[in-house]
């Protein structure tokens, strides 16, 4: 193993790269505490836009819908995605496998405008009213593919001899799955769920096609506010979302680190 050394060029590119990634987000959060209504002129510190945000009922209602859609679609996507990952790794040969892998990988790179439009036309064709459920079903279809990839990569790397040992000792397949396989792949299932949840919270395009008069999501609200011009309330809403996500990612990282440490300790 040779020592790798960071050159000046390496350090500079890391510093500039991370500044480029983080400065816009930091500026956005900073200007949410701006007293001035002008988003680009600093007028002193204030938390007034957070108050205005919580009094904005339309925005709060949209946030509530977004949260419910994200929770429900992420749960459905986690179940379906885990099943799909099991199908691809454990039940290798089934008819139409090539079509199946195609359908799993395509939605991840497919432009959102196509996915959104095609799902909407489907819902109209089967006469399904647009609203909460159409957004939920659309998001489930998109995000289950991401769950599949996350869980599949875990299923491919883990030690199958544990499963075989359980089977040899007489555990039935379902029991083996629930007491051996599931605990081993649980971290990747949680990661898949979080990814699905975030993707759903974030989606503008697919939700715009499939939203109905009864249900509008937060990204749709933010988008129409941004089209009218910059607004400090949007900055405040963004800062809250960024705060939640940052906390979530940090605690997930700590949790997974602790479980890695614990499993390492048990292994010794």
């Amino acid at each position: 193993m040779t020592m790798r050394r960071l050159s000046v060029f390496n350090v500079t590119s890391l510093v500039i790269g991370f500044a480029f990634l983080y400065l816009p987000i930091l500026l956005l959060v900073l200007y949410s505490f701006n007293a001035s209504r002008l988003v680009t002129v600093w007028g002193g510190f204030s938390t007034q836009w957070y108050g205005a945000l919580f009094r904005n009922e339309a925005l709060m209602e949209a946030a509530w819908v977004t949260l419910r859609v994200a929770l429900l679609s992420a749960m459905l996507a986690t179940v379906l995605g885990t099943l799909a990952a099991l199908a691809l790794t454990r039940y290798g040969r089934f008819p139409g496998r090539a079509l199946f892998t195609g359908m799993v990988y395509a939605p991840m790179v497919m432009p959102e405008v196509i996915t959104g439009l095609s799902l909407l036309l489907f819902f109209v064709a089967v006469d399904f009213d647009r609203g909460f459920w159409t957004i939920t079903l659309a998001h489930t279809t998109l995000t289950m593919c991401f769950v599949t990839v996350v869980v599949q990569s875990r299923l491919m790397t883990f030690d199958r001899s544990l499963e075989e040992a359980a089977m040899d000792l007489g555990a039935p397949p379902l029991r083996t799955f629930f007491s051996v396989t599931l605990p081993l792949i649980a971290p990747s299932i949680v990661a898949g769920f979080l990814l699905a949840f975030t993707l759903s919270m974030d989606d503008l395009v697919i939700a715009s096609f499939n939203a109905g008069p009864g249900a509008t999501t937060l990204p749709i609200k933010i988008y129409s506010a941004v089209r009218l011009g910059l607004s400090p309330e949007v900055n405040a809403a963004s800062a809250i979302l960024i705060g939640i996500v940052t906390l979530g990612v940090i605690s997930a990282t700590l949790l997974s680190k602790r479980s890695v440490l614990r499993s390492r300790r048990n292994a010794h």
């Binding site: 503008l204 979302l241 960024i242």
Partner: peptide, 8 residues
Amino acid sequence: TSFLIRIY
């Protein structure tokens, strides 16, 4: 963090 927010 939200794609839309980062573009905004």
